[in-house]
């Protein structure tokens, strides 16, 4: 009796652990964004990249949808996603693009924008990078889709691609 019980427990434990390992093998996502999705943005204050202006959450409340994009002139992948940002600027009617220039030099940032085009409706500078932590940023480029209630709808880690571009177009219709 005691032995059968022990046997059952041990077999169940073995199956449980092996099963967990099996399911665990299929999980590959490294970055976790689900803590942020559905929550509201914290208040923030940033200086505008070029103007003597303050950029904060009030600005976001004015627009139906906002895509906050973290970028820098020194970041290679930012160049790769740049064309999608330009297209979003042209094609997504309800969307305003807010570029946050991350740990960059103002001169280089402006050079980048004049060379490749400026997709942003508003440009802010986070020269020390500290504000990025408020947005749960891991590294750049990253983009966060926010509605006018400051609710985070989706977060895109790494350079935007064609699928994600379509996704944004659909979400902001």
């Amino acid at each position: 009796m005691k032995k059968t019980f022990l046997k059952l427990i041990l077999f169940a434990l073995a199956i449980f652990i092996i099963g967990t390992f099996y399911v665990g093998l299929k999980k590959t996502e490294i970055y976790d964004t689900k803590n942020l999705i559905g929550t509201n943005l914290d208040n923030f204050t940033l200086n505008s990249l070029n103007e003597d202006l303050e950029i904060n959450q009030e600005l976001i409340k004015e627009n139906q949808y906002n895509l906050i994009n973290f970028w820098a002139s020194w970041c290679g992948p930012c160049r790769a996603e740049h064309k999608y940002l330009m297209n979003l600027n042209r094609n997504a009617k309800n969307l305003k693009l807010i570029g946050i220039n991350f740990k960059d030099d103002k001169k280089n940032a402006n050079k980048f924008l004049s060379k490749f085009g400026d997709p942003y409706h508003y440009s802010a500078a986070d020269s020390e990078g500290k504000v990025s932590i408020n947005f749960g940023v891991y590294g750049i480029p990253e983009s966060i889709l926010v509605d006018n209630n400051l609710k985070i709808i989706k977060k895109f880690i790494g350079p935007l691609n064609q699928d994600e571009y379509k996704d944004i177009i659909n979400l902001t219709k």
Binding site: Y31, K103, E128, G129, K130, S132, I133, Y138, G139
Partner: peptide
């Protein structure tokens, strides 16, 4: 350090670790 492989913020010198240290 979330962008590193199994390192703490103290051990890493990545962009992310530097930013977190400042914060």
């Amino acid at each position: 350090c979330l962008v590193c492989q199994g390192q703490s913020i103290a051990d890493s010198n990545s962009e992310f670790a530097q930013t977190v240290k400042l914060v």
